[in-house]
Amino acid sequence: MKAGVIVFPGSNCDHDAWYAVNENMHDRAEFIWHDSTSLGDIDAVILPGGFSYGDYLRCGAIARFSPVMQAVKKFAADGGLVLGICNGFQILVEAGLLPGALLRNRELKFICREVCLSTDTTASPFTSRLNKGQILRIPIAHGEGQYFADERTLDELESEDRVAFRYVENPNGSARSIAGILSRERNVMGMMPHPERACDPLMGSTDGMGVFESMLASMPTAVPVLS
């Protein structure tokens, strides 16, 4: 798998995503600058965490106008895998690739904490190598992570099995404890927790590997992951 990590001005988890794929997964990742109009030869897109454009106006609201987002939309429409982490999730929501919105945390404070997620579906290229109900220890680090959508959208997400992860203990007031969701076609996932921060035993957890391993496993020319 060759992953393209999009770098917006203000992205700051771009290196972490790159490191997780290259060094922890021993796979390949490269950076793509936000004003690129094409993505080049890649198999998956990662929109990393950070504060794109300083999160001014609204998180992700400016980044969605970056030239690269046209290419990302096309890539997604063609069935390519797009993973948005934290600020990346916020951008995907602003860009209309995922439904709902991310509001300020219920306590109105930034929260950095390792949390437990429960795997809600394994029917996706991001979760296929996990077990349903599997608990993952993965950190969150956000000020605006409260997932919000109207009841109809939430019902739809649930009935279409598009909730990827839920918080075991809801840290930020997210609707129905949602931590990550899938697009209707299931090839776009946004999640507030940071799987790239949980790929190295030194960081205290390797549970984030499951997401990247699932992505790798879904590649047409996938090399089986040794476990």
């Binding site: 972490d16 404070k109 950095c112 790239e196 921060r197």
Partner: peptide, 14 residues
């Protein structure tokens, strides 16, 4: 205090 700080970004914090 420290939960308001991102103490993990850059994945170096052992």
């Amino acid at each position: 205090i420290w939960e308001q700080y991102d103490y993990m970004v850059r994945t170096n914090t052992i």
